[in-house]
Design a protein around this nucleic acid. Sequence first.
DNA 1: ATACAAACGATAGTATTACTTTCTTTTCTG
DNA 2: CAGAAAAGAAAGTAATACTATCGTTTGTAT
Lengths: 228, 228
Amino acid sequence: MEYSVSVRMNEHLFLRDPESTDLGRRIVQQGIVVFDELGFEDTTFRKLADRLGTKEASIYRYFENKHRLLVYLVAWYWQWLNYQVIFQTNNLTDPHEKLERVLRVLLLHDLSQAANGDIDIQTLHGIVIREASKAYLTHHVTDDNRQQLFKPYKDLCGRIAGIIQEYRPNYPFARSRASSLIETAHYQAFFMQHLPSLTDFGGQQDDTDLLAFLRHLLFSSLDGGALA
Amino acid sequence: MEYSVSVRMNEHLFLRDPESTDLGRRIVQQGIVVFDELGFEDTTFRKLADRLGTKEASIYRYFENKHRLLVYLVAWYWQWLNYQVIFQTNNLTDPHEKLERVLRVLLLHDLSQAANGDIDIQTLHGIVIREASKAYLTHHVTDDNRQQLFKPYKDLCGRIAGIIQEYRPNYPFARSRASSLIETAHYQAFFMQHLPSLTDFGGQQDDTDLLAFLRHLLFSSLDGGALA
DNA sequence: ATACAAACGATAGTATTACTTTCTTTTCTG
DNA sequence: CAGAAAAGAAAGTAATACTATCGTTTGTAT
């Protein structure tokens, strides 16, 4: 069973394609490790270069700056996740069951073994939870958007919104419902770990309760009654 | 009618209380303007100092760094909002009506005139939408939390969760529901403005539809049926 | 009115960051 | 095996994120 995805990434996401060379792949792989260990703010290309036994200048040949590296990693994650959603819902007919699978994919349930080459999905998931919103919460979001940097995220939202429409054709907020589902899954996971009093599942390792919350929130909004 | 709130802010939020001096108040007031114009990343104390006709060193006497200034502004906003929720729901008995008011407060409906001294609430609201999550999405969130920097946010969530419990005593996710309500209100507003295809109210000025979405999402989750 | 402290202004200095440039050597490819 | 692409190495620059010191102003208590 080979899950390896080799989707082509948008050219604006890098200066030189990191998938094309050994150093490039190591930058991405160790980039994930360094972001995870130091956090986005404290990460520098210098530190990453030291860890790779190379020089800053070499990394700059692949990515304009660390923000672009983050955007690349996050985009890669969304593309991978979109693929997982396709894979897990393809053979299903019941939209309810499809949404159930989407929920599990978002929490990376049963996907840890879906290893992909040298990318550590679990660690990348953690980075997405803590750092992904910094990819778009910038002053230059409009320029970045014009360069299609967020297309993978939009594609994933679009796909989930499509399933929502299948499940309930008259629901008028499919896109917002999809994006809020993804976002809610992530910061609730963050709160659960770091600011537990903002959740009802404080300090748990297991995300069974988080899944229950998301499931109830999703289906009650779709099954529920009166819409303005 | 005087809305002016003079709540005491947590001492860990600053080095010297900015409310105690003229320069301090101007740092806060112009800090909002500069964060709004340049965004958090491109803001520096140097630029803020230039605009104030003072020096970096003077600002450092009030705030350890710009992250702390952001945390201060965001905390101020949550405190102010919490006060508004209290004010707007105090005389009400119907929890449904209370939640309706909460929704409107979150979107700053009918509050623009609730001016507060030299703080521009509308602009601060914009900063909270774009930058607030950077206050806690850091590597040092646990230390910051230990210093109670996020207490105002927690207090607001706690208050809203309390109203949710009043409305539906058996709902098991009141805290998560409250925090996800606040977060959803904010990034949907951000998406609406900057990444409209992630929402169903693309590019609108008016947030009537956003309010409708949030209302439906909230009440369907609370009025809805079966809970696991 | 004066004395004392607190606040502010002004200057300078440091380590680090976020790059860019250039040139040489290695590695890959046809 | 020739040429191109990639990587290594060294150096440099402007800006950032502070810290330290010291003199002057301003506010406050007596």
